[in-house]
Design a binder for these strands. Structure first.
Lengths: 185, 185
DNA sequence: CGATGAAGTGAGTGACCGCTCACACCACCG
DNA sequence: CGGTGGTGTGAGCGGTCACTCACTTCATCG
């Protein structure tokens, strides 16, 4: 790893390692999910030993929750940025947020982490709590930025969840009629 | 299990046993998902030995695919039945199908198997294929029975996927504003 | 009856999993 | 210089996993 270029200790090295690990974990978890992926794979992808992984995240559950929160954070940040840019350009923030969500789903890693998160929520209360907190923030954000009514907001998020599912099962790109119908914008 | 104490033992056919196993498997898989649930738990829930489970389903993957298909079958059957009843009663089949999907999600077992199926689709091509086949049938069915246009069909399924997700993360029943907004009909 | 084949299981197997521990390394400080 | 505290690891531990095999029990039929 490259050492910090300059400065004094603004960020601990362990903290930076944790960032590396979370990034690598998202990439590894997205294939077989949280329960299906061994911690050894995460450690290898992050370029550290399994022993050190367990010092950075005391249990696998801790790691999973952190990964889920990171995925949620990434979505929220993208929404905030898209809304700000749209407002500055005098465009519709709602449309910009919908478009940016579609762009996010192009990143298969993020998308799969999302659906693994929802699946894991069934047996991990902390993950479920993180998911709910994320939806709370996202709904508030979209409502505030767009001023849409309840039905319109529900449609916005429903469309997002459909796109999630379609991407997960590999529907986009298929030329069957049903796939084009459900994935079409 | 039951006939162990008595000297008599009533054998069942392998086919009947497979049905029992699939039913039990849905109940056990729904908690921790396909990769997170050991086959031992499935065998116990079905009341057979692990060894015999592996004679009925040669690999865990075979079992998982069969369970996914069974969940999909159950939804399709419910849709067909609801549409037929609605038509016979002179009601709107589309509304009936939407309502019956809401009823199906009351069964947490089925709902969780659905989202675990979508998650598993990421690493199990056969599961992904089963999911796609199910969507193909469902879309054709709803379109045929309701005659709705593309946008309306997409909204129908999008709403279903949102309900899936909300139920999975435990949103229904919460009194936070966002939850009522997204789960409200 | 004895034979045949399907139903069903106890007792493993090797591989793998989450997690731990003793210890090495390195930068900095007095 | 030695000490201190954080970074990092090799080697495993106990337990669990998917899967197997030798074996028993049962129903059926000539």
């Amino acid at each position: 790893m490259a050492p910090a270029t300059t400065t004094k200790r603004t960020l601990s090295t362990a903290e930076a390692r944790r960032e590396t690990v979370l990034e690598a974990a998202m990439g590894v978890f997205c294939e077989r999910g949280y329960l299906g992926t061994p911690t050894k794979d995460v450690a290898e992808a992050a370029g550290i030993s399994q022993a050190y992984l367990f010092r950075l995240f005391p249990t696998k559950s801790d790691l999973v929750v952190a990964v889920a929160q990171r995925a949620n954070d990434r979505i929220r940040e993208a929404f905030v940025k898209a809304a700000a840019q749209a407002k500055a350009a005098g465009e519709d923030p709602g449309e910009a947020m919908g478009r940016v969500y579609g762009d996010l789903l192009e990143d298969r890693t993020l998308l799969l982490n999302l659906i693994h998160q929802f699946a894991a929520a069934a047996s991990m209360p902390e993950v479920a709590e993180a998911s709910r907190a994320s939806f709370a923030e996202l709904v508030a954000l979209v409502e505030q930025e767009t001023g849409r009514d309840a039905e319109s907001l529900q449609r916005f998020f429903a469309h997002g969840m459909l796109m999630n599912t379609m991407a997960a099962i590999g529907a986009p790109g298929r030329d069957e009629r049903w796939a084009q119908l459900l994935t079409g914008c």
